[in-house]
Amino acid sequence: MTELDRSLDAASLEERQRRFQEDLIDAYDEELEMEIDDRIQDGDAGLTEEARLSRKRYFRELFRLQGELVKLQDWVQKTGYRLVVVFEGRDAAGKGGVIKRITQRLNPRVCRVAALPAPNNRERTQWYFQRYVSHLPAGGEIVLFDRSWYNRAGVERVMGFCTDDEYEEFFRSVPEFERMLVRSGIKIVKYWFSVTDDEQELRFQARVQDPLKQWKLSPMDLESRRRWEDYTHVKEVMLERSNIPEAPWWVVQAVDKKRARLNCITHLLGQVPYEEVEHEPVVLPERVHHAEYIRHPVPESMIVPEVF
Score class of each variant (00 low, 15 high):
residue 272 V to L: 02
residue 233 H to L: 12
residue 287 R to I: 15
residue 242 S to I: 10
residue 47 L to T: 08
residue 111 C to G: 01
residue 140 G to A: 07
residue 225 R to I: 15
residue 64 R to N: 09
residue 214 Q to D: 09
residue 289 H to C: 03
residue 79 T to M: 02
residue 99 I to V: 12
residue 266 T to R: 07
residue 198 D to G: 07
residue 189 V to G: 00
residue 19 R to A: 11
residue 282 V to Y: 13
residue 176 E to Y: 11
residue 303 I to D: 00
residue 289 H to Q: 00
residue 293 Y to P: 00
residue 226 R to E: 15
residue 196 T to F: 05
residue 166 E to T: 02
residue 131 R to F: 06
residue 201 E to Q: 11
residue 116 L to F: 06
residue 197 D to G: 04
residue 42 D to K: 03
residue 81 Y to Q: 09
residue 291 A to K: 06
residue 179 R to P: 09
residue 184 S to D: 15
residue 300 E to H: 01
residue 61 E to K: 13
residue 174 V to T: 14
residue 165 D to Q: 05
residue 304 V to T: 10
residue 166 E to P: 03
residue 4 L to D: 13
residue 243 N to V: 02
residue 303 I to K: 06
residue 145 F to C: 04
residue 15 E to V: 02
residue 218 S to N: 13
residue 187 K to Y: 02
residue 161 F to Y: 11
residue 112 R to Y: 06
residue 176 E to D: 14
residue 233 H to K: 11
residue 305 P to S: 06
residue 203 R to M: 15
residue 25 I to R: 01
residue 172 R to C: 12
residue 106 L to D: 11
residue 246 E to G: 07
residue 122 R to N: 05
residue 143 V to L: 02
residue 133 V to E: 13
residue 166 E to C: 00
residue 254 A to T: 10
residue 244 I to F: 09
residue 158 V to N: 00
residue 2 T to I: 00
residue 243 N to S: 12
residue 156 E to G: 06
residue 45 A to P: 01
residue 155 V to D: 01
